[in-house]
């Protein structure tokens, strides 16, 4: 396993991500598998900050800094443009944050998924508008503190995977940096599929989650092992596969490590646990339907 890792620096050092940035880890892991025959699209977000200021860039593949809400149609335009020119050897990768996916870019992503344009869309979900200084998004989990939910987010996190599944696109999967091999296997799998592929990639954000700079991978693992963020994939909107049997740790193990949840009371934690348990049962049920 280890020797198969290609040390391709497609996310070059010297970028401006915060120390311990989970998003940078995620982009690095994704680009490593995508390889140099890739055109990437990024949108205004931390990806822009990471991309660097002219004339230097951290991106080792041709990359286009598009507008906020159009990562998907931009990538689709590139994919179709390349297809017209017979460049089937180049894959098109769209990176967008949770704001650019769950909120402002949801419509355009939906449009592309409906057309099944041949792109790999990676949503780098750090669960709030971090680049603009931590404002609530519809990917922000229940009760989480942000600068625009100072009392805690009153609403639950949007289930983007179900929204994607409802498009019957060929492949959607959750992944997170704490399971790099799972993530890279999913990218590899997605590369082999034509059509709109979607990766919901949870990337802890030390700055916005109010956590130390050294525990992003650990938080990512805890999110999975507490079932807050199960690892699974959905094919053609029908076939659900759970990729990792979680240890089912109590949600506290995840929540209480983060400053954004430090104000949570017992009842709120119980509620999060109930929500998590309910979602897990639903997911298991869906996974059981196709054997």
């Amino acid at each position: 396993m280890a020797s198969s890792v290609q040390e391709l620096n497609l996310l070059r050092p010297g970028h401006a991500a915060c120390a311990g940035c989970g998003l940078a880890i995620g982009m690095k892991l994704v680009l490593e598998v995508m390889g140099p025959r890739t055109v990437a699209v990024i949108v205004p977000s931390c990806e822009g900050a990471i991309g660097g200021v002219y004339p230097n860039t951290s991106y080792g593949v041709p990359t286009f800094h598009s507008a906020f809400e159009i990562a998907a149609p931009t990538a689709a335009g590139i994919a179709n443009g390349l297809k017209i020119q017979g460049r089937d050897d180049i894959q098109v990768l769209a990176f967008a944050g949770d704001g650019g996916t769950f909120d402002i870019g949801l419509q355009s992503l939906s449009g592309v998924a409906k057309n099944n344009d041949d792109i790999l869309y990676v949503c780098l979900d750090n669960e709030a508008y971090m680049n603009t200084g931590i404002q609530v998004s519809s990917a922000t989990p229940s009760y989480a503190w942000t600068n625009t939910t100072p009392e805690g987010n009153p609403r639950r996190k949007k289930n983007i995977m179900e929204i994607m599944a409802a498009h019957y696109n060929p492949y959607s999967a959750t992944a997170t940096i704490g399971y790099p091999r799972d993530l890279q296997q999913k990218i590899t799998k997605a590369k082999g599929i034509r059509g709109t592929k979607f990766i919901h990639l949870l990337v802890p954000c030390p700055t916005g989650w109010r956590t130390p700079s050294d525990i992003s991978p650990e938080l990512s693992i805890l999110a999975v092992e507490t079932n807050v963020f199960p690892l699974y994939e959905v094919e053609e909107g029908r076939k659900y596969t759970i990729n990792h049997e979680p240890r089912r740790l109590p949600v506290q193990a995840y929540l209480l490590k983060q400053g954004r949840f430090k104000h949570l009371g017992e009842e709120q934690i119980r509620q999060v646990q109930r929500d998590v348990d309910e979602e897990w049962e639903k997911l298991k049920h869906r996974a059981s339907l196709q054997g």
């Binding site: 699209v41 598009s66 149609p73 990538a75 335009g77 590139i78 017209i84 020119q85 419509q107």
Partner: peptide, 17 residues
């Protein structure tokens, strides 16, 4: 596309190829 906004986005992107 699902909107004119995306139509223009796609045109720009394709043009850059």
């Amino acid at each position: 596309t699902e909107s004119e906004h995306s139509a223009m986005a796609s045109c720009i992107a394709a043009s850059l190829t």
